[in-house]
Amino acid sequence: MPDIEFTLGLARADVDIAPTRASEDSEDATLVSAISLGDEDAFSRFHRKYAPLVHGIALAKLPAGEADDVTQEVFLAAFRGIKSLRDPDAVGPWLVKLTRNHVAGFYRSRKISEELPDEIHDRHSHRHEAAEILLAIRSLPEAYSETLVLRLIEGMTGEEIATRTGLSSGSVRVNLHRGMDLLRKALGVEVKK
């Protein structure tokens, strides 16, 4: 029975978000065509809209300071390469891929210098706990870690994650719940039934 409820819930969610996704696609296509013509205002709107997504994807792999830098680099690369984008509606997934490539390139070309939290000796401090949770999230498979970072750190809803990454709502929902279960295990928290 729980499986049936889950399936029904997914179907309802898909119907609900369909118009939203269509309008987002339309907006993205407009932005992409404007940016292709060199419209800096459009690029600024594009940056505001997608920066949390790019930052979240980068943060799932990189230290916080490096994630900020990579985010800016990805947008510069996006501005230069957006003319080569065949499907303007797929700009979100394209950005995700671009970010993953930059992260991979970052690991190839530089040495990672992860800064330790200032209060590393105080195991009960807020920053230490935050670093511990982030490390636990990063240890999860990519699909889970990226989705959890976008949800728990960047504050996006499941629907927003699905729309911007191009994933189906069902996939995002599964990634969120399974990822959360794995995170609880990694943190030593008993999984809620």
Binding site: A130, I133, H177, V189, K192
Partner: peptide
């Protein structure tokens, strides 16, 4: 966890702790 409707104290606590890593808007490149 999906749509932020209702409440979940555990997830809300994790969100609060991790908020320091959240993206801070910066000027467009």
């Amino acid at each position: 966890l999906w749509d932020k409707q209702g409440s979940d104290s555990e997830i809300e606590r994790i969100e609060t702790i991790l908020s320091e890593y959240r993206y801070v808007p910066v000027p467009t490149p």
